[in-house]
Design a protein around this nucleic acid. Structure first.
Length: 210
DNA sequence: GTTGCGATTGGCT
DNA sequence: GCCAATCGCAACC
């Protein structure tokens, strides 16, 4: 146990430090708590994720080894990895795997369970309901996640964003990752089967349930 | 120092 | 389905 770790958070740290695909699947149904205790508090249930592996995954930022941007993916699990892309969108990831091994799970979509008005205000467009946190860019925008949140510890109670485990196992659909040039055939996308907040439903012939 | 492009999105054909 | 918007990275010279 590293200095500063509490006996309570350390078992959770080990849960995040498992293989990336397993964490990606198990994050479906978990809830994000943002700005808890403030007037803009939001609770969001994760409904879609993608696994990005380490140096063996050509689609991963970690593929060519650690860089100034990707070094967080090689660090301890349970931290938030946020990057900026297309000159306008942020994407939020949860770091996985043992310290020294790269891996992260992209949060692609979530369902708002509390604080909908705060999310609508942050969106600032006409988005409502299941569309509020649909898609990785929209998820960050609706939750106010930017590079200012890069590296925060999701297990630390004081963090602006933290994550709670789900109670039961939802029906899961498995499919290929979205928007990639390489490794487009790997089944590393996980979603809550049939949830209206999922960004792009998994084609029926590729889907599986558990 | 320069350059090509991306784990996206919304709008239009 | 196609495409522009817009800029930080990382690769390359």
């Amino acid at each position: 146990m590293r200095r500063g770790d509490s006996p309570v958070t350390e078992p959770l740290r080990e849960w995040f430090a498992r293989p990336t695909e397993q964490v990606a699947r198990d994050l479906i149904g978990c809830t994000l708590a943002v700005d808890a205790g403030t007037s803009s508090a939001v609770i969001a249930r994760i409904v879609e994720t993608e696994a990005y592996l380490g140096t063996s995954d050509p689609a991963s930022h970690a593929f060519r080894g650690p860089t100034p941007r990707s070094r967080l993916m090689f660090g301890p699990a349970g931290h938030l990895y946020v990057y900026f892309t297309y000159g306008m969108h942020h994407c939020a990831n949860v770091v996985t795997e043992m310290d020294g091994v790269a891996g992260a799970v992209l949060l692609r979509a979530a369902a708002v369970e509390g604080g909908e008005a705060a999310v609508m205000a942050r969106r600032g467009d006409g988005a409502t309901g299941a569309g509020l946190l649909r898609g990785p860019g929209n998820l960050c925008r609706g939750l106010g996640i930017t590079r200012a949140d890069n590296g925060i510890d999701l297990l630390e109670p004081a963090s602006r964003v933290h994550l709670d485990r789900r109670e039961s196992t939802p029906p899961i659909a498995i499919g290929t990752r979205v928007g990639l040039r390489h490794a487009t055939d790997r089944l590393l996308r996980f979603s809550w089967l049939g949830d209206p907040a999922v960004s792009r439903p998994v084609p029926r012939d590729r889907g599986e349930t558990n």
